[in-house]
Protein backbone atom coordinates (compact mmCIF):
# COMPACT_ATOMS: atom_id res chain seq x y z
CA UNK A 1 0.00 0.00 0.00
CA UNK A 2 2.82 2.37 -0.77
CA UNK A 3 1.53 5.69 -1.94
CA UNK A 4 3.11 8.67 -3.54
CA UNK A 5 1.19 11.74 -2.47
CA UNK A 6 1.45 15.41 -3.18
CA UNK A 7 2.77 15.79 0.31
CA UNK A 8 5.88 13.94 -0.64
CA UNK A 9 7.60 17.03 -1.98
CA UNK A 10 6.79 18.90 1.19
CA UNK A 11 8.13 16.06 3.29
CA UNK A 12 11.35 16.03 1.34
CA UNK A 13 11.70 19.75 1.90
CA UNK A 14 11.04 19.18 5.57
CA UNK A 15 13.88 16.71 5.71
CA UNK A 16 16.22 18.85 3.70
CA UNK A 17 15.72 21.77 6.05
CA UNK A 18 15.91 19.75 9.22
CA UNK A 19 19.19 21.25 10.25
CA UNK A 20 17.40 24.49 10.94
CA UNK A 21 14.90 23.00 13.31
CA UNK A 22 16.50 20.01 14.95
CA UNK A 23 18.47 22.12 17.38
CA UNK A 24 15.25 23.19 18.97
CA UNK A 25 13.79 19.72 19.06
CA UNK A 26 14.69 16.42 20.57
CA UNK A 27 15.59 14.81 17.27
CA UNK A 28 19.27 14.26 16.99
CA UNK A 29 19.52 11.17 14.88
CA UNK A 30 19.39 12.86 11.50
CA UNK A 31 22.40 12.61 9.27
CA UNK A 32 23.51 16.06 8.26
CA UNK A 33 22.86 16.71 4.60
CA UNK A 34 25.93 18.28 2.99
CA UNK A 35 25.34 21.78 1.72
CA UNK A 36 25.62 22.34 -1.99
CA UNK A 37 28.75 24.16 -3.06
CA UNK A 38 28.21 27.83 -3.87
CA UNK A 39 30.02 27.71 -7.20
CA UNK A 40 28.51 24.40 -8.25
CA UNK A 41 28.15 25.52 -11.87
CA UNK A 42 31.86 26.03 -12.30
CA UNK A 43 33.05 22.79 -10.79
CA UNK A 44 34.02 19.70 -12.72
CA UNK A 45 31.22 17.20 -13.27
CA UNK A 46 32.84 14.76 -10.92
CA UNK A 47 32.71 17.25 -8.12
CA UNK A 48 29.26 18.66 -8.64
CA UNK A 49 26.91 18.04 -5.79
CA UNK A 50 24.68 15.63 -7.61
CA UNK A 51 23.05 13.32 -5.16
CA UNK A 52 21.81 15.45 -2.31
CA UNK A 53 18.12 15.34 -3.18
CA UNK A 54 18.33 11.88 -4.73
CA UNK A 55 19.86 10.54 -1.57
CA UNK A 56 17.18 12.04 0.61
CA UNK A 57 14.42 10.87 -1.73
CA UNK A 58 15.95 7.45 -1.87
CA UNK A 59 16.26 7.16 1.90
CA UNK A 60 12.75 8.49 2.26
CA UNK A 61 11.27 5.89 -0.10
CA UNK A 62 13.31 3.09 1.49
CA UNK A 63 12.02 4.16 4.89
CA UNK A 64 8.43 4.01 3.64
CA UNK A 65 9.11 0.49 2.38
CA UNK A 66 10.52 -0.39 5.80
CA UNK A 67 7.41 1.00 7.51
CA UNK A 68 5.21 -0.96 5.11
CA UNK A 69 7.09 -4.16 5.95
CA UNK A 70 6.90 -3.56 9.68
CA UNK A 71 3.18 -2.83 9.87
CA UNK A 72 2.43 -5.88 7.74
CA UNK A 73 4.79 -8.16 9.64
CA UNK A 74 3.85 -7.18 13.19
CA UNK A 75 0.22 -7.52 14.32
CA UNK A 76 0.23 -4.31 16.37
CA UNK A 77 2.62 -1.43 15.75
CA UNK A 78 2.60 1.89 17.54
CA UNK A 79 4.61 4.80 16.19
CA UNK A 80 5.01 7.09 19.17
CA UNK A 81 7.20 9.72 20.77
CA UNK A 82 9.50 8.13 23.30
CA UNK A 83 9.21 4.56 24.51
CA UNK A 84 6.34 2.85 26.36
CA UNK A 85 8.06 3.14 29.74
CA UNK A 86 8.84 6.79 29.03
CA UNK A 87 6.47 8.43 26.55
CA UNK A 88 7.53 11.93 25.53
CA UNK A 89 4.09 13.23 24.66
CA UNK A 90 0.71 13.02 26.38
CA UNK A 91 -1.03 11.66 23.29
CA UNK A 92 1.52 8.88 22.94
CA UNK A 93 1.19 8.14 26.65
CA UNK A 94 -2.56 7.86 26.24
CA UNK A 95 -2.28 5.23 23.50
CA UNK A 96 0.37 3.30 25.43
CA UNK A 97 -1.89 3.24 28.50
CA UNK A 98 -4.77 1.95 26.42
CA UNK A 99 -2.69 -0.79 24.76
CA UNK A 100 -1.20 -1.79 28.12
CA UNK A 101 -4.71 -2.28 29.50
CA UNK A 102 -5.23 -5.11 26.98
CA UNK A 103 -2.05 -6.92 28.07
CA UNK A 104 -0.98 -7.53 24.50
CA UNK A 105 2.38 -7.45 22.82
CA UNK A 106 2.99 -4.57 20.50
CA UNK A 107 5.96 -3.14 18.72
CA UNK A 108 6.83 0.53 19.03
CA UNK A 109 9.05 2.93 17.14
CA UNK A 110 10.27 6.16 18.69
CA UNK A 111 9.65 9.01 16.26
CA UNK A 112 11.63 11.41 18.42
CA UNK A 113 14.67 9.26 17.74
CA UNK A 114 14.28 9.16 13.98
CA UNK A 115 13.21 12.28 12.13
CA UNK A 116 13.43 10.63 8.71
CA UNK A 117 11.13 7.85 9.84
CA UNK A 118 8.73 10.38 11.31
CA UNK A 119 8.44 12.27 8.03
CA UNK A 120 8.23 9.03 6.02
CA UNK A 121 5.50 7.77 8.34
CA UNK A 122 3.42 10.93 7.95
CA UNK A 123 3.61 10.51 4.19
CA UNK A 124 2.99 6.76 4.28
CA UNK A 125 -0.14 7.13 6.43
CA UNK A 126 -1.17 10.49 4.97
CA UNK A 127 -1.60 11.55 8.59
CA UNK A 128 0.11 14.62 10.01
CA UNK A 129 0.64 13.72 13.65
CA UNK A 130 2.14 11.18 16.05
CA UNK A 131 1.14 8.76 17.60
CA UNK A 132 -0.17 6.40 14.93
CA UNK A 133 -1.50 2.92 15.58
CA UNK A 134 -1.47 0.10 13.04
CA UNK A 135 -3.18 -3.25 13.50
CA UNK A 136 -2.48 -5.93 10.91
CA UNK A 137 -1.21 -3.39 8.43
CA UNK A 138 -4.27 -1.23 8.80
CA UNK A 139 -4.04 2.32 10.03
CA UNK A 140 -6.38 2.83 13.00
CA UNK A 141 -5.78 6.47 13.80
CA UNK A 142 -4.14 8.69 16.39
CA UNK A 143 -4.84 9.25 20.06
CA UNK A 144 -8.41 10.56 19.68
CA UNK A 145 -9.63 7.74 17.46
CA UNK A 146 -7.87 5.03 19.49
CA UNK A 147 -9.50 6.45 22.62
CA UNK A 148 -12.91 6.36 20.98
CA UNK A 149 -12.40 2.81 19.69
CA UNK A 150 -11.30 1.84 23.19
CA UNK A 151 -14.29 3.35 24.99
CA UNK A 152 -16.73 2.04 22.38
CA UNK A 153 -15.39 -1.49 22.88
CA UNK A 154 -14.31 -1.76 19.26
CA UNK A 155 -10.59 -1.80 19.94
CA UNK A 156 -10.91 -5.01 21.92
CA UNK A 157 -12.43 -6.68 18.89
CA UNK A 158 -9.83 -5.25 16.54
CA UNK A 159 -6.98 -6.46 18.78
CA UNK A 160 -8.58 -9.86 19.26
CA UNK A 161 -8.87 -10.27 15.50
CA UNK A 162 -5.22 -9.36 15.17
CA UNK A 163 -4.22 -12.38 17.27
CA UNK A 164 -5.75 -14.79 14.78
Amino acid sequence: MLRSTFKHAQSIRNIATLNAVTNAKRCFSVTQVPRASVDADQSHDDFKPKSKVDNVTDRFEKMKEFIDQQVNKEPVVLFMKGIPSRPECGFSRNVVNILESYKINYKTFDMNADQLMKEALKDYSDWPTIPQLYVKGEFQGGSDIVSKLHFDGKLKQILNDAKK
Binding site: K7, Q10, N14, D126, P128, Q140, G141, D144, I145, K148
Partner: peptide, 21 residues
Protein backbone atom coordinates in the same frame (compact mmCIF):
# COMPACT_ATOMS: atom_id res chain seq x y z
CA UNK B 1 -14.48 8.57 12.14
CA UNK B 2 -11.11 8.01 10.46
CA UNK B 3 -12.41 9.54 7.23
CA UNK B 4 -13.79 12.52 9.14
CA UNK B 5 -10.44 13.12 10.81
CA UNK B 6 -8.74 12.75 7.45
CA UNK B 7 -11.07 15.33 5.93
CA UNK B 8 -10.23 17.84 8.66
CA UNK B 9 -6.51 17.11 8.49
CA UNK B 10 -6.55 17.52 4.73
CA UNK B 11 -8.30 20.91 4.93
CA UNK B 12 -5.61 21.98 7.38
CA UNK B 13 -2.62 20.41 5.62
CA UNK B 14 -0.92 23.77 5.10
CA UNK B 15 -1.24 24.55 8.78
CA UNK B 16 0.35 21.21 9.67
CA UNK B 17 3.28 21.81 7.33
CA UNK B 18 3.71 25.30 8.79
CA UNK B 19 3.96 24.53 12.47
CA UNK B 20 0.63 23.20 13.66
CA UNK B 21 1.82 20.38 15.88
Amino acid sequence: LLQRHRAVNSILSDEFSQGLH
